[in-house]
Simulated assay, not measured.
Amino acid sequence: MTTKTIAIQQEAVKDGNRLASVMTVVAWIALCIGLVTCLFEVSDFSDRNLGLMVGIGFLVGSVQIYMIGAAIRLFHTGKAKQQ
């Protein structure tokens, strides 16, 4: 019974690391999209420039996605150390 419990818990940690890795990749993709969008739309630097605002949104969103992925990785690492 204990062996099955340990195997299930190790699987959950692997899934948490996989999710964190996927979120890191998504964060980098969002960062690249934001940079490209901002560079194309920087000529008219105002709050009425929708493309620039979307680009800035991608930049801010990429940081948030990365932070959530890092938190998931830390949570699952701490959970694995407790067991």
Rank of each mutant, 00 (worst) to 15 (best):
F40E: 12
L52E: 00
R73V: 03
G51N: 06
I65M: 08
M1L: 05
G69K: 08
D47I: 15
M1G: 10
V26R: 00
Y66H: 10
F75L: 15
I56L: 13
L31G: 07
M67Y: 04
A80G: 08
I68D: 02
I8C: 02
M1C: 07
G61F: 00
T2G: 10
W28M: 14
C32F: 06
A12P: 01
K81V: 14
I29R: 04
G34D: 06
L52N: 00
G34R: 07
F40R: 14
F45P: 03
M23Y: 01
Q64H: 07
V25I: 15
L31F: 07
I56S: 02
G57V: 04
T2I: 09
L31E: 07
D47L: 12
G69P: 08
S43C: 09
Q10R: 13
A30V: 05
V54K: 10
S62W: 01
Q82S: 11
G61E: 02
S43V: 13
I29H: 02
Q82F: 03
D44T: 12
W28C: 12
L35D: 04
T2A: 07
G78Y: 10
G61W: 00
C38L: 13
C38R: 09
M67T: 14
C32V: 14
W28R: 08
L31H: 05
I6V: 15
W28L: 11
N49T: 12
A12M: 13
L19E: 03
Y66R: 13
S46V: 07
V22F: 02
L59N: 08
R18Q: 14
V60L: 06
F40H: 15
A27D: 01
L74V: 14
Q82L: 13
V36L: 11
I6N: 03
R18F: 05
C32D: 04
I56H: 00
F58P: 01
E41Y: 03
V42Y: 03
F75K: 13
S46K: 08
I56D: 00
G51Y: 00
I56V: 15
D44G: 07
S62M: 04
R18S: 13
S21T: 12
A27L: 03
F58W: 07
I65Q: 02
T3S: 09
V54A: 07
N49A: 04
T2N: 12
M67N: 10
N17Y: 03
V63G: 06
F40V: 14
F40L: 14
H76D: 11
V13R: 06
I72F: 02
I33C: 08
D44C: 06
I68K: 05
D44E: 12
A30D: 07
A80D: 10
Q10T: 11
G57L: 07
H76L: 11
G61Q: 04
E11V: 09
L39G: 11
K4T: 14
A12S: 12
L59I: 15
G55A: 08
Q10D: 09
